[in-house]
Simulated scan of single mutants.
Amino acid sequence: MNYNLNPNLFSEGIEKKSCRQGYGDEILELAKISKRVVVLDADLAESLRILDFRKKYPGRFLEMGVSENNMISVATGLALEGFIPFTSSFAVFTPNECLSKIRVSVAYNKANVKIVASHAGISTGPDGATHQATEDLAIMRSIPGMTVFAPCDYWQTRKAIRSAFKINGPVYIRFGRSDIPMVTTEKTPFRMNECQVIRDGVDGAILAHGESVYRALKAANILNKEKRLDFAVINCHTIKPLDEKNILKYAKKTRAFIVVEDHQISGGLGGAVSEFLAQNYPIPVEFVAVRDRFGESGSPAKLIKKHHIDVEDIVEAGLKAKERKRMFVYNRG
């Protein structure tokens, strides 16, 4: 199968770029398409890579200062007047600092607000626990009517931002801070509400989002080369609505899942997948996620290793899934 992935995927010199740069580049393109596009910032323009937007479109850039509640309220008003506002902050601040405004002002009114949240997960690194959002997906996917994207790299972030622009309703887009490997290319398809199978397999399926997708691919290669296990890898860039059709297809095909995410084990992609499987096709599921603890200051690589969401942890989960699948199939006869 041709997945249109980066041909240099596992080379040492693979190009790396941040998702936040993808946001900054794509929002400039959207501004050319529609004069209704406006950007609101919570004093983080440099971090969100929207300084160029501010310079080129000063009349469509609103600096709200350190006031996320006000930013969301103003964005709601703009949306109800026909604009397409993109709010820009860290995932630890939106939603955490302004959840009531997101819930009541944005979601309850079905306002066409796009909430862009950078620096998600423990991979935020040196900023420490206070700035490492590991609960945001659990919060946002529980809000009625909220679409939730978690793109895996620069190009997919651009496509998620473009897709959010096309949706008439509230959208949450989450991504990390670091420069990360470019798994996809400009030509890689991106379909809203449809997960992306980027490696096929029959022994199990690894479901991931964000920068965890690259680690999932590396783990699948190790499982194949060293253990002769053929695991599919599914990039679940749309957390909500969940692609139930393909999730069910691969549950029946592989009968064992591993869910990998830089997020708490509760309420994220793992929660969404488990809720669906419990009601439709129960199979063994292993979780590689942050386990009910806060992060800390450190390099992204060290934190990913310490919190057991690294490549070797996915490989270990794959072996557990294989054994649980064997017992599951045996017990079902």
Rank of each mutant, 00 (worst) to 15 (best):
E12L: 12
R20P: 05
D25M: 02
I33C: 12
V37M: 12
S47M: 15
I50M: 08
P58H: 10
R60W: 00
F61C: 04
S67F: 11
N69G: 15
I72W: 14
V74P: 00
L80T: 14
S88H: 09
S89N: 10
E97Y: 12
L99H: 10
S100C: 04
Y108P: 04
A111C: 07
S118Q: 06
H119W: 08
S123A: 15
G125T: 08
G128N: 09
H131P: 05
A138H: 13
A138I: 13
S142H: 06
P144C: 03
Q156G: 02
R158L: 00
I161H: 01
I167D: 01
G169F: 00
Y172N: 02
G176L: 07
S178E: 13
V183K: 01
T185R: 01
C195D: 05
D200A: 09
A205T: 10
L207K: 01
N224L: 11
N224W: 08
F231L: 04
V233Y: 02
I234S: 03
K240D: 11
E244L: 01
K253H: 11
F257S: 03
S266D: 10
G270Y: 02
S274K: 09
E275K: 05
E286Q: 11
R293W: 00
S299T: 13
H308A: 08
D310Y: 14
V311S: 05
E312Y: 09
V315G: 01
K322A: 11
E323C: 02
R326F: 13
M327Y: 14
V329N: 06
N331T: 01
